[in-house]
């Protein structure tokens, strides 16, 4: 199995998104994992929600596309979008180049912290990815 960059400070979802807490957990920043970006290949387009839009736990909030594939983006929690990465409209390649940094997708606030208990840590997610490769 290929080696994936899975930072310890992130939590992970079964839909291959990462979640990072900021502002003492008041804000969640969301992106797709190194595994997801490698699987998709060259990202050509990212469709994101608008600021102030409500997103729901487990529901699609956007779409990410490579040349030959389309994938829904699922929200890790219920809350309100407070920021979206506008740069991706012109530079979708940032998701490939720096998925945990400049390639972030959205920031969400107003989240019930308990939701995070159901997410995976880096180790659990690594096992989860490996289990799907079998």
């Amino acid at each position: 199995m290929a080696d994936y960059d899975l930072p310890d400070e992130c939590l992970y979802t079964e839909h291959d998104e990462w979640v990072r807490m900021e502002m003492d957990g008041a804000r969640l920043v969301v992106g797709i994992t190194d595994y997801a970006q490698q699987e998709l290949g060259d990202i050509v387009y990212v469709e994101l929600p608008s600021v102030a839009e409500e997103v729901r736990d487990g529901q699609p909030f956007g779409v990410i596309e490579s040349v030959k594939a389309v994938s829904d983006l699922y929200s890790p929690a219920t809350g309100t979008v407070v920021a979206v990465n506008e740069v991706l409209a012109d530079r979708p390649e940032l998701v490939n180049e720096d998925c945990y940094g400049e390639g972030w997708l959205v920031a969400i606030e107003g989240v019930d912290a308990e939701v995070l208990d159901s997410l995976m840590d880096a180790n659990a997610y690594r096992k989860y990815v490996a289990s799907r490769a079998e």
């Binding site: 050509v44 387009y45 596309e65 490579s66 040349v67 030959k68 594939a69 389309v70």
Partner: peptide
């Protein structure tokens, strides 16, 4: 921009 089309997005 083929991801708009039926052979990739199918019912969507």
């Amino acid at each position: 921009l083929s991801t708009r089309e039926q052979h990739i997005r199918r019912e969507r």
